[in-house]
Simulated scan of single mutants.
Amino acid sequence: MMTGTGPIHYTGVAKTLHWLIALVIITMLIFGQGFETSEGDDLAFSLTGHSSLGLTVIGLIILRILWRIGHPPPALPETVAGVQLLAAKLSHLLLYALMIYVPVTGLYTAAAHEMPVMAYGAFDLRVTLSFFGADDFEGRRFLHELGTWLLISLLAVHVSAAFLHQFVQKDDVLRRMLPGKAKG
């Protein structure tokens, strides 16, 4: 049983943005692997893909936040209360914060990279973001990697909670965000 009188499913736009952002983040994490061992053209390719997807995530997150402001999420089931409700709200807030923090610190790091970081293959982020300066690459990379690991950890909690709702609590929380036509 859902609380409130609003919709019980997310809108099609919200679902599309959710799954598109998930796909882009997973792809971006793949591009981000192996930076330490890549060189030359392989590193340039990875930096281009990773930075381009980071800029894309920022745009998609802004759209998602704007959409969410005008289209509040559906109410959670009445069984989600107390600490679980607080955890759900806090984890979503932290997810949004980290989905902004990680790409922004990535851009900050790119500004100090020794190689050109060609976003979309069209412009060098080091030039575009030169106002950040180019010092302390390692410190910037640390901030970016820390945020990345926090985001990965929180995403693991998010996915685990979705599966808990679907397969243990059987309360249709996951179904509200699955692609396709809403039922009920």
Rank of each mutant, 00 (worst) to 15 (best):
A75I: 10
A75E: 13
A75R: 00
L76C: 04
T79N: 11
T79K: 13
G82C: 14
V83M: 09
Q84K: 15
L85I: 01
L86I: 15
A87S: 15
A88F: 15
S91W: 03
H92N: 14
H92R: 15
L94Y: 01
L94N: 00
L95A: 03
L95Q: 12
L98D: 13
L98C: 13
L98W: 05
M99A: 10
M99W: 04
I100E: 00
I100C: 05
I100V: 15
I100G: 05
P103G: 02
P103F: 04
T105S: 12
A112C: 11
M115S: 08
P116I: 02
V117Q: 09
M118N: 09
A119C: 07
A119L: 04
A122Q: 14
F123C: 01
D124R: 01
L125K: 07
V127L: 06
V127D: 06
T128N: 04
S130A: 12
S130E: 14
S130G: 10
F131V: 11
F131S: 11
F131D: 11
F132L: 01
G133E: 00
A134T: 15
D135F: 01
D136P: 00
F137R: 13
F137H: 15
G139M: 11
R141T: 00
R141Q: 10
R141D: 12
F142M: 09
H144I: 07
E145S: 14
L146N: 05
L146Y: 09
L150D: 10
L150T: 08
L150F: 14
L154M: 10
A156Y: 03
V157T: 07
H158I: 01
S160Q: 06
S160Y: 01
A161N: 13
A162R: 02
F163Q: 03
L164A: 06
Q166M: 08
